[in-house]
């Protein structure tokens, strides 16, 4: 068991191994991801019933909730990769951390924008300084901070360390986001999906949402792999295998 884990760790630490294996997985992941997203969007927009209180505006939920989910999940991955970078100086962990940041920032941006658009017809305002929304805005700035710090140093290692520390410190924000709708009085509606109890959503509305959430998780995987592969090529361009790969291209 231990030797297996050790082997896996060394394999994961090898950029070349990751590049080869992810190249084989990528088309299939992308295909399943596109299938899920298209099914979910068509179902959510055209076939799911309208909400009895919010009417059709609630259809934004099918992109708002998945985007918010992976904005948060992406932060965990970035923080864990940051911790591995700091503790074990693993090259690939640094690559993953840097690749996570722009995707996470974009997803947080989407969560905020779709939330604002949904807020207008539902609450009558685009924006309120309420706990959930403000803590999501903080998440957005944390992602931007990690991107800025990782680029701010001429020495790449210094940039990696600084941004990893920021990513780790920023994890304080994550439980605040989760709990914000329970801790403070908020305009934001409480969670519709619950792991421990039955969801408060009708199955006709719930299924497309679950499909969209899985689709967004796969989308995240696809985007992360794309970014990691590009970063690997950029960093390893002096190695033999990248040279061979580059020259084999038309």
């Amino acid at each position: 068991m231990w030797s297996f884990l050790k082997k896996l760790y060394h394999k994961l630490g090898s950029p070349r191994w990751f590049y080869d294996i992810s190249g084989k997985w990528l088309p299939w992941l992308a295909l399943v991801c596109a299938g899920l997203l298209i099914t979910g969007v068509v179902w959510g927009l055209a076939f799911a019933p309208a909400d009895f209180k919010q009417g059709n505006s609630y259809r934004i939920i099918y992109i708002h909730v998945p985007a918010s989910f992976i904005a948060l999940a992406g932060y965990y991955i970035m923080a864990v990769a940051g911790a591995v970078t700091l503790i074990w100086r693993m090259k690939m962990a640094d690559v993953v951390m840097r690749s996570c940041a722009p995707i996470g920032a974009a997803m947080t941006f989407l969560a905020l924008v779709t939330g604002a658009i949904w807020g207008k017809p539902t609450w009558g305002t685009w924006w309120v300084w309420d706990a959930r929304i403000t803590s999501m805005l903080v998440l957005f700035f944390l992602y931007l901070g990690v991107i800025a710090l990782s680029e701010a140093f001429t020495n790449r290692d210094a940039g990696s360390k600084a941004s990893a520390v920021l990513a780790l410190v920023g994890t304080v924000n994550i439980p605040i986001i989760y709990k914000s709708v329970d801790w403070w009085y908020s305009l934001h509606q409480p969670a519709t999906l619950k792991i421990t109890e039955e969801s408060t959503m009708h199955p006709d509305m719930l299924y497309p949402l679950l499909i969209m959430i899985s689709g967004f998780y796969l989308l995240y995987a696809v985007l992360l792999i794309l970014n990691v592969r590009t970063e690997i090529l950029s960093r390893e361009h002096r190695t033999k295998w990248v040279k061979a790969l580059v020259l084999a291209r038309p």
Binding site: L45, G55, R59, I117, W118
Partner: peptide, 15 residues
Amino acid sequence: MSGHGVYVWSAYIIV
């Protein structure tokens, strides 16, 4: 979308 089209569609287009 009974008046909500502008909101729903703009959100989906941005995404």
